[in-house]
Simulated scan of single mutants.
Amino acid sequence: MAKRPMTAKQLANLQKNQFPKGKSGNPKGRTPTPEELKISAAEMSPDALKEVQRLAKTSKNDMVRLKANELILSYNLSKAAQKVDVSGEIHHNHTSDLIAKAAKAREIIEGQVIEAKPLPDPDNHHLQ
């Protein structure tokens, strides 16, 4: 069934109550969960899990068994791996490199010539 177009009154009401662009509808953020509720939920969790396990194994209703098993699996199986493309340059800045860069910056700022060269990396002496 196709949706009916909004009336002019509905559109005006929508625009009047719409949040301004870039403004949050909830600037203070989510209300924190009360500590008593967290404690109560933690205390009930073992019994709730046992009940879900029982339903997953013994319910006569296929949908109840399916949902109980989905719930159990959702907490025990990791989500499918997702491909992430990362591009960019990786720079290894050793202390000696940073000292040389600082000296160069100082040279530019003060207008003085300072001779500074990076020292060899002691961890990679076998690469030289």
Rank of each mutant, 00 (worst) to 15 (best):
51 E>C: 00
51 E>G: 06
52 V>Y: 03
52 V>D: 04
52 V>N: 08
52 V>F: 09
52 V>A: 10
53 Q>K: 08
53 Q>I: 06
53 Q>H: 02
53 Q>V: 06
53 Q>D: 02
53 Q>E: 15
53 Q>Y: 01
53 Q>P: 00
54 R>W: 07
54 R>V: 03
54 R>Q: 11
54 R>E: 14
54 R>L: 09
55 L>R: 11
55 L>Q: 14
55 L>C: 05
55 L>T: 06
55 L>N: 11
55 L>Y: 03
55 L>V: 03
56 A>E: 02
56 A>L: 00
56 A>W: 00
56 A>V: 03
57 K>Y: 05
57 K>R: 09
57 K>P: 01
57 K>C: 00
57 K>W: 00
57 K>I: 01
57 K>N: 11
57 K>G: 03
58 T>L: 03
58 T>A: 10
58 T>S: 14
59 S>N: 09
59 S>Y: 03
59 S>D: 15
59 S>H: 06
60 K>N: 13
60 K>P: 07
60 K>H: 05
60 K>A: 15
60 K>R: 07
60 K>F: 07
61 N>I: 04
61 N>S: 07
61 N>K: 04
61 N>V: 05
62 D>G: 03
62 D>T: 07
62 D>K: 10
62 D>C: 02
63 M>V: 07
63 M>W: 01
63 M>G: 00
63 M>Q: 08
64 V>M: 10
64 V>T: 12
65 R>N: 04
65 R>I: 02
65 R>A: 05
65 R>W: 04
65 R>Y: 02
66 L>C: 00
66 L>H: 09
66 L>A: 11
67 K>W: 05
67 K>Q: 10
67 K>E: 11
67 K>N: 09
68 A>M: 08
68 A>R: 04
68 A>K: 00
68 A>S: 13
69 N>S: 11
69 N>I: 06
69 N>E: 14
69 N>V: 01
69 N>D: 09
70 E>K: 01
70 E>V: 04
70 E>F: 01
70 E>S: 03
70 E>T: 02
70 E>I: 06
70 E>P: 00
71 L>W: 10
71 L>Y: 02
72 I>L: 15
72 I>P: 04
72 I>H: 05
73 L>W: 06
74 S>Q: 12
74 S>F: 07
74 S>G: 00
74 S>R: 11
75 Y>I: 01
75 Y>S: 13
75 Y>M: 08
77 L>N: 13
77 L>Y: 03
77 L>T: 12
77 L>R: 11
78 S>I: 06
78 S>Q: 13
79 K>L: 12
79 K>G: 12
80 A>W: 03
80 A>H: 04
80 A>E: 15
80 A>L: 11
80 A>F: 05
80 A>G: 10
81 A>I: 08
81 A>N: 08
82 Q>W: 02
82 Q>T: 10
82 Q>D: 15
82 Q>A: 12
82 Q>I: 08
83 K>W: 03
83 K>V: 01
83 K>F: 09
83 K>M: 09
83 K>L: 11
84 V>T: 13
84 V>L: 13
84 V>K: 15
84 V>M: 14
84 V>S: 12
85 D>P: 05
85 D>F: 10
86 V>H: 06
86 V>M: 12
86 V>G: 07
86 V>I: 14
87 S>C: 03
87 S>R: 08
87 S>E: 13
87 S>A: 11
87 S>G: 12
88 G>E: 10
88 G>C: 07
88 G>Y: 02
88 G>N: 01
